[in-house]
């Protein structure tokens, strides 16, 4: 952690960045995102195994948009998010300094996008055993069973949109669910309103989601949204040989066409 703090302090002291985006101790033994603008403030910066919230989210918020340059403490999920945001023309390399941190919490120093791409490849997506088990369980289901499983899983949703609000890839100024003319997605959090919302979001993230799992972590009613995204990512990888978060120059599978695209869905 000390090397991360040293790096952050130097960047601010040397005026290389105006803002460091990282973590601090929160309340009730939690950690939380924090914004550091002076070398002295960095005393409060922390990094430990609990710093898993995907803070790449804030890159699209006012505080980061208004900073001329910034650094971010970036675990593999954050690095993948940054690369994907760059691929979608949402951030520029010259504005951001990536303080790379491995899954194990080891600081690998500053990463430019090229180095970040290499880093990403060496840091595979983390998936908990219970997640793997759930994926296997769902994969063994028939189509009807899968549908019923997800309708049931979405039913406790209260449409607080914490999944969307916490997702670095959900940066749209106006979400499709807020578009009411026509009303594509029912606003009410009933069974089918919930299903349509989560299906729509999953489809908009297919091939773009970097599988950080923040949607599930932020969900107050613990819907396994990360599993849905993970399964879609797997599908996109298998069918289109395309994976998000590995390159800063990348066109998501669903917004591109290549000659080798399979057409096996046409029946």
């Amino acid at each position: 952690m000390e090397d991360i703090k040293k790096l952050a302090r130097e960047l601010l002291a040397d005026n290389k960045v105006q803002l460091v985006l990282g973590f601090e101790n929160g309340t009730a033994n939690r950690v939380r995102p924090a914004f550091f603008t002076t070398p002295e403030a960095v005393d409060k910066l922390i990094y430990n195994e609990f710093c898993i919230q995907n803070i790449a989210l804030y890159l699209k918020k006012d505080i980061c948009q208004h900073a001329a340059s910034l650094a971010i403490t970036a675990n593999p999920n954050v690095v993948r998010s940054i690369l994907q945001l760059a691929a979608e023309n949402q951030i520029k390399e010259e504005k951001i300094k990536i303080i790379g941190i491995t899954h194990e919490g080891k600081c690998v120093g500053l990463l430019d996008f090229k180095a970040a791409e290499e880093f990403s490849k060496t840091q595979p997506k983390g998936l908990k055993d219970e997640d793997k088990a759930l994926i296997e369980k769902i994969q063994a289901m028939s189509l009807e069973e899968k549908f019923d499983y997800w309708v049931e899983a979405f039913s406790p949703c209260i449409k607080c949109y914490a999944c969307r609000a916490s997702c670095p890839m959900c940066y749209c100024g106006k979400c499709n669910v807020e578009s009411n003319n026509p009303q594509w997605i029912p606003v009410a959090p009933h069974k089918y309103g919930n299903m349509e919302w989560h299906m729509m979001r999953a489809m908009h993230l297919a091939g773009r989601c970097i599988n950080c799992g923040e949607c599930n972590r932020s969900c107050p009613v613990d819907i396994p949204l990360n599993i849905l995204s993970y399964m879609l990512s797997d599908f996109v990888l298998e069918e289109f040989e395309s994976e998000a978060g590995l390159s800063a120059v990348f066109t998501p599978a669903l917004s591109s066409y290549t000659m080798v695209d399979k057409e096996n869905f046409i029946k």
Binding site: K159, A162, A165, P186
Partner: peptide, 23 residues
């Protein structure tokens, strides 16, 4: 509010929040 992500979780779990939409 700097780190607020702008979701509605706080209001929806609150026993006293009564704001609503009509659809």
């Amino acid at each position: 509010a700097m780190r607020c992500v702008g979701c509605g979780a706080c209001a929806f779990v609150c026993p006293a929040c009564g704001c609503f939409d009509i659809q």
